[in-house]
């Protein structure tokens, strides 16, 4: 598509006219402001590509002389905000309140309000009274990465405030990725006799080199030797609360998953811990020596088996 057509201007349009035309299209068609409107989206993508090309006078001159074409300017999808904006784990979205949903039945109210870290009732807002204007301080938002183990077992961390000072944060045991910790009174300053706002800290859990977490379940991949796989045996497995012994059954295969009950994470507010799932992975010795090779040569002549039987697509 001709970039001038995409912006709806003539070839002689001034830089100002270009900008104006683009501005109009941003207002009317930007997909982050008008999600779910595919016709407008195409219009915007073409206009954005056209504007990127034409806003630079040098590039525009080269295009006008036919030295470059209008290709290759379209922007990949991942650069639009709306791709992230509606996701449940968008750290920016829980800023919305649902206090005005108070007339809904309890179950929905709880559902929607819990995300915002519902404010205490019976207070809040602003007003004149007692001779002067009073308003509660605003909430201050932060995002904090915490080490995997601190999130699983609890711990403490520090965040740096805009003024450079630090604030100690207790990380409750079992906190999940994306959950928010509210520190009462650690937010913005109030006006008059209002209350100070709160600090809201959205937690992001750092990955661990051994463990993976899925809710209150911990997963780990455990390498075992071929003799352990064939003969079975007891091996040590790391868990978030120290190593434990695990019995490998005779004839174990890679991919087999064993469950260690009660070795996972205790979710917030509950005593019972989840489980740890151990996925076995048979690992050969670093070097296959003559003994092993010779044994296998002999063994397979009389004990052939086919684990890929029935694998026809």
């Amino acid at each position: 598509m001709d970039p001038y057509d995409a912006l709806g201007v003539t070839k002689t349009a001034s830089a100002d006219e270009l900008k104006k035309a683009y501005r109009k299209l941003v207002k009317e068609c930007h997909p982050d402001l008008h999600p779910g409107d595919s016709a407008n989206e195409e219009k915007f993508k073409a206009a954005a590509a056209a504007y990127d090309l034409l806003k630079d006078p040098e590039q525009r001159a080269r295009f006008d002389k036919g030295e470059i074409d209008a290709q290759g300017q379209e922007r990949p999808e991942a650069q639009f905000y709306r791709q992230y904006a509606g996701a449940q784990d968008n750290p920016y979205r829980d800023q919305q309140g649902f206090d005005d949903f108070g007339d809904m039945s309890g179950v929905f109210e709880d559902l929607f309000r819990q995300r915002g870290g519902a404010r205490g009732t019976g207070h809040g807002g602003s007003g004149f009274g007692g001779g002067g204007f009073h308003a509660d301080g605003g909430d201050a938002r932060y995002r904090l990465e915490v080490p995997f183990m601190d999130a699983a077992l609890g711990g403490s961390a520090r965040i740096t405030l805009p003024d450079g000072s630090a604030l100690e944060v207790q990380i409750p045991r079992g906190i999940a990725d994306g959950q928010t910790i509210r520190l009462r009174g650690k937010g913005g300053a109030p006006i008059g006799e209002g209350r100070p706002g709160d600090a809201l800290i959205t937690i992001s859990i750092a990955p661990h080199k051994l463990f993976e977490r899925d809710g209150d379940t911990i997963r780990i991949v455990l390498p075992i030797t071929i003799d352990e796989a064939v003969l079975g045996g007891k091996v040590e497995v790391p868990t978030i609360s120290g190593a434990v012994n695990l019995t490998i059954p005779k004839g174990a295969s890679s991919g087999q998953v064993l469950r260690l009950r009660g070795r996972g994470v205790a979710p917030r507010g509950r005593e019972a811990r989840g489980d740890q799932l151990v996925e076995l992975k048979v690992v050969l010795p670093p070097k296959v020596d003559d003994d092993l090779a010779e044994f296998m040569e002999n063994w397979r002549t009389t004990h052939a088996y086919d684990p890929r039987k029935g694998m026809t697509p």
Partner: peptide, 26 residues
């Protein structure tokens, strides 16, 4: 607070994620 960087304990500092890149672009 148009964008809120992610604070990291070690090494201490702040980082931005993909959602922040898209948000800053917008």
């Amino acid at each position: 607070r148009i964008v809120i960087p992610l604070q990291r304990p070690s090494p201490p500092g702040v980082v931005y994620s993909q959602i922040d890149a898209a948000r800053l672009r917008l």
